[in-house]
Nucleic acid binder design. Structure first.
Lengths: 337, 337
DNA sequence: CTGAAAGCGCTAACAC
DNA sequence: GTGTTAGCGCTTTCAG
């Protein structure tokens, strides 16, 4: 039982190989009657073209790769769905590849995506080994863009959300509600995004004439948020509002405050960041900063495809604006009334 | 600037094309001195083989695909990492592909993975369009296995966790703590897993001589858990324990009970399912049923690779045992003392 | 142990 | 419009 090839279609349809190929590629220079004959033959035979052969002959695969480390993040999920849809619209396919947690050092080499000609281009999604990846990709001359880069002044093309503004607006929202004792639970310094959000917070506080109070964490997760609040409270810090650098941190903070008898938002206001899936599901619903996931994905695709089409012209990085989503976890400062 | 091909290596190393190919494929029948020459030439030239050409020549790609709909699930994340590592160990690469949310109907056709020869085999991970996918894969004769199938008596090869036992054990745990008023918040009937967990619960309750009380939900999420509990309480149902069919539901249930002034676990015990990432992060830490993600991934790879190697022999489905993780959200029934 | 020759299945000029 | 002729870069017999 051999696989049916283009030759079988040639035989069955009676036209030449080239004509079949033309039909395959939607060439307009094929007589309609012949096109039908070919189409019919393909259908009868159950023919599908060999992608390996096509890739070899054309020198491109029609595949775009995206690398990530974790799937447990609904923002990434949103971005990837957006990327997928944009790509489909352009006739490309998306292949995701996760970095093996095991060895981050030489994982760049192990990625199938990085096997040069497996993909036509790559999107790097918030990766830790950014530096290594970038080096490798440049060496192999694979077109790529980065969404959510962690390296500050990378020369690579990046698609980002302005985390400084996000941090600023989150804090502004709290300030506008009359809060002045605002604690910021910051994410790991490793993340550029965490650093930027923090800067936004500090700027807003300073502008308003209040002293910033920041507590750092090792990870973006619930437990860190919980512990941070517990630690602050133990130190006698008594905020009336908290701006958490990520929704998980916010959730943990909420847990901790509740544990200490605080009511949200009556006694303490909480703002998160990212608008993770659960933010609008928990009680009270979390006020947070949303990233424009659809737009991020679309822009990344647009720019990457531009790079692939015209490797000559210089692509420019993009920085999008985040959006404040006010829900139930923030309220006017009681002391302010 | 052309890409360096095997011919360049031939020229530089002075041996024949075939010998170069042999080195590429780790053939043992190459004189060591020649091997070194070739290796050196490859290195100097920065040569990497064309995967398209290899795929074409060998008729296989060395790629295994996995399809999923969402990334926002830490159990899937665990499974996929396990799959990735197993595959790497066997010299295969993993490509993930998400179903576009847009059109579930003909998405099977749109998946790049399903383009016949793009991959050597496919793992279907808990997909809604299972029936369509299976049909398509069988038609195209692509080897595949399913993790967490939704169709009850599929003839496809599946790798599963015994959800009946999971439901049974979760309930048994509560029963052992002296609870008898145990409410079960069940997931969508659409999921085979939800139905099985529910059956396990019912069996345990019936065996113990208590009446099962089940409330169904439309989705596995926090809000549904919250609403379910609120609805029950409004109806005058007063459980002392809840077995939620999924951790998100459990989290929502916890929110609702707390909202009504219940303390966990003093006034109400909660058991979840899945051991999602947040289960051990929230407060109190959630007692739940954990799926053996690593094993699931490993088994899936083992079986799939077997199918690819020896298409003749019949592979058998596998059903693994889940594990109860007791944490802080369950306690002895107060009324029981 | 090595090499020459024959494809793998398709696309891309170039003529007709 | 359509067909002929070359490859794309590698693996695989089969002799030596």
């Amino acid at each position: 039982m051999k696989k049916v090839s283009i030759l079988d279609v040639v035989e069955k349809s009676g036209v030449s190989l080239v004509t079949v190929s033309r039909v395959l590629n939607n060439s307009t220079t094929v007589r309609e009657s012949n096109r039908q004959k070919v189409l019919q033959a393909m259908k009868d035979l159950g023919y599908t073209p060999s992608s390996a052969a096509r890739s070899l002959a054309r020198g491109s695969t029609g595949l775009i790769g995206i690398t990530l480390q974790t799937l447990g993040d609904t923002v990434f999920d949103g971005i990837i769905h957006a990327v997928n849809e944009s790509l489909e619209a352009k006739g490309y396919f998306l292949a995701l590849s996760i970095a093996s947690t095991a060895q981050l050092d030489n994982s760049a080499v192990n990625h199938f995506l990085f096997q040069e000609d497996r993909v036509d281009g790559i999107i790097l999604l918030s990766t830790f080994a950014e530096k290594e990846y970038v080096l490798e990709l440049k060496r192999k001359k694979i077109p790529f863009v980065i969404i959510d880069n962690h390296i500050e002044d990378t020369k690579a093309v990046t698609i980002n959300v302005d985390n400084f503004i996000g941090g600023y607006e989150a804090t502004r929202h709290l300030l506008d509600l009359g809060h002045s004792q605002i604690l910021h639970i910051s994410g790991p310094e490793l993340y550029l995004s965490a650093r930027d959000r923090r800067r936004g917070y500090e700027q807003a506080m300073t502008e308003a004439g209040f002293a910033p109070t920041v507590i750092g964490t090792d990870e973006f997760n619930i437990r860190c948020g919980f512990n941070s609040v517990k630690a602050c409270l133990a130190q006698g810090i008594r905020p009336t509002a908290v701006f958490a650098g990520e929704d998980g941190l916010a959730l943990g903070a909420m847990d901790a405050f509740r544990d200490e008898g605080y009511r949200i938002p009556q006694d303490i206001s909480i703002v998160g960041y990212d608008d993770q899936y659960f933010a609008k599901e928990i009680h009270p619903r979390l006020t947070t900063i949303r990233q424009p996931m659809e737009k991020l994905g679309k822009e990344a695709v647009r720019i990457l495809l531009d790079m692939i089409d015209g490797p000559s012209k210089r692509s420019k990085s993009v920085c999008l604006k985040p959006e404040l989503i006010v829900r139930e976890s923030t309220a006017e400062c009681a002391a302010h009334k």
